[in-house]
Amino acid sequence: MRAVLLTGFGGPEKLVYREDVPEPRPGPDEVRVRVGATALNNTDIWTREGAYGSADDPGSSAGWRREPLAFPRIQGADVAGRIDEVGAGVPASRVGERVLLDPMIYQGGERELVTTEYLGSERDGGFAEFVTVPAGNAHAVDTPLSDAQLATFPTAYATAMRMLNRAGVRPGESILVTGASGGVGSALIQLATIRGARVVAAVSGGKREQARELGADATIDREKLSTELPATSVDVVADVVAGPGFPSLLRALRPLGRYVVAGAIAGPLVETDLRTVYLQQLQLIGSSFGSHEDFRALLAHITGGELRPLLAATYPLRELRAAQEHFVRKNFFGKLVVTPGER
Rank of each mutant, 00 (worst) to 15 (best):
S204T: 09
S204A: 14
G206M: 05
K207W: 06
R208K: 14
R208L: 03
R208E: 14
E209N: 14
E209F: 05
E209T: 11
E209L: 12
Q210E: 13
A211I: 11
A211H: 13
A211C: 12
R212F: 02
E213T: 14
E213K: 15
L214M: 11
L214P: 15
A216H: 12
D217F: 12
D217E: 07
T219G: 01
T219S: 03
T219H: 10
I220C: 02
I220V: 15
D221M: 08
D221V: 07
R222D: 02
E223K: 07
E223Q: 11
K224M: 05
S226L: 03
E228H: 12
E228G: 02
L229K: 10
L229T: 09
S233I: 06
V234S: 01
V234T: 06
D235V: 08
D235K: 06
V236D: 01
V236Y: 10
V236C: 03
V236Q: 01
V237N: 04
V237T: 07
V237E: 02
A238Y: 00
V240G: 06
G243M: 04
G245Y: 10
F246D: 02
F246Y: 14
P247R: 03
S248Y: 11
S248G: 14
S248M: 02
L249G: 08
L249N: 09
L250G: 01
A252S: 15
A252M: 10
L253W: 13
L253G: 04
R254C: 05
P255I: 02
L256S: 14
G257T: 07
G257A: 02
G257F: 12
G257M: 04
R258S: 07
R258T: 05
R258E: 03
V260M: 00
V261A: 03
A262P: 14
A262W: 07
A262H: 09
G263T: 00
G263R: 00
A264C: 09
I265Q: 12
I265P: 12
I265E: 11
A266L: 02
G267R: 08
G267S: 08
G267C: 07
P268D: 00
L269C: 03
L269S: 10
V270H: 10
V270P: 10
E271A: 15
E271Y: 07
T272H: 06
D273P: 01
L274H: 07
T276M: 08
T276G: 00
T276P: 00
Y278A: 01
Y278D: 00
Q281R: 15
Q281M: 07
Q281G: 04
L282Y: 09
Q283N: 10
I285R: 14
I285D: 01
S287E: 03
H292K: 15
H292A: 11
E293P: 04
E293W: 14
E293H: 14
D294A: 04
F295R: 09
F295P: 14
A297F: 09
L299M: 15
L299G: 06
H301P: 13
H301R: 10
T303H: 03
G304I: 09
E306D: 09
E306Q: 12
R308N: 07
R308L: 07
P309V: 00
P309L: 00
L310H: 09
L311M: 08
L311G: 09
A312I: 08
A313I: 04
A313Q: 13
A313K: 15
T314Y: 11
P316L: 08
R318H: 15
E319K: 15
E319N: 08
A322E: 13
A322C: 03
A323H: 12
Q324Y: 11
